[in-house]
């Protein structure tokens, strides 16, 4: 029994050592807008993300129409008027994790990270950087981060009539379990 357990652990470790790239096609990205009038949240659970554990390269891509709101009308306005998702259907991020070699992918723990790169949405690309973490637990790798973006930086215009309901700065929460490797 002990030999079997040892072999399984060894196999898991070998898998992690030999695999250099981890990815998911079902990562989660949510955003929050908080104002004194209303709090708005939308979730997208169809995020594709690839993490290169050797070079630290990290990328995300998602469909804007994949964001699901509690209220149907908000979802309509978000797609048709604010993000214009027929014209700009996807948002992407391409960047790198600094000092990736400080993360021991074989050892359980929560490793703080600094990610920087290009975030593209609504047809505009801006450089961003954000703190986050990589969590290793029993071989499972989860990346998470929370950062803010200003709507004006991406030329997302909110009409004056609903200006009080939507924050000018949106908080974005990333949570991806990299359940596939290559």
């Amino acid at each position: 029994m002990k030999k079997l357990l040892f072999s399984i652990t060894l196999l898991n470790c070998c898998n992690i050592v030999f695999a250099q790239k981890f990815y998911t096609k079902n990562g989660s990205i949510s955003f929050f807008s908080t104002t004194y009038v209303e709090n708005i949240q939308a979730d997208n659970n169809q995020v594709m993300s690839v993490l290169n554990a050797t070079t630290g390269e990290l990328q995300f891509s998602l469909f804007i129409k994949g964001f699901h709101f509690k209220k149907a009308l908000m979802e309509e306005h978000f797609n048709e008027n604010y993000l214009e998702s027929d014209q700009y259907p996807k948002a992407t991020f391409k960047g790198t994790i600094a000092d990736i070699n400080k993360i021991n992918f074989l050892k359980d723990g929560v490793y703080p990270i600094l990610v920087s790169g290009d975030l593209t949405m609504h047809g505009i690309t801006n450089k961003i950087s954000s703190k986050g973490s990589i969590t290793i637990k029993e071989g499972a790798i989860t990346g998470s981060s929370v950062f803010s973006v200003a709507l004006a930086d991406y030329k997302i215009v909110i009409p004056a009539i609903v200006e009080t309901k939507i924050s000018k700065t949106i908080e974005i929460k990333v949570n991806c379990l990299y359940d596939q490797k290559m």
Binding site: K21, K25, M48, K90, M182
Partner: peptide, 21 residues
């Protein structure tokens, strides 16, 4: 249906066709 994901041609990751709700 939300369309087909872009995948990553360089890495050989194929895009899935997404269905939600």
């Amino acid at each position: 249906c939300n369309g087909i994901g872009q995948g990553d041609a360089d890495l050989g990751i194929k895009g899935d066709v997404y269905l939600v709700r």
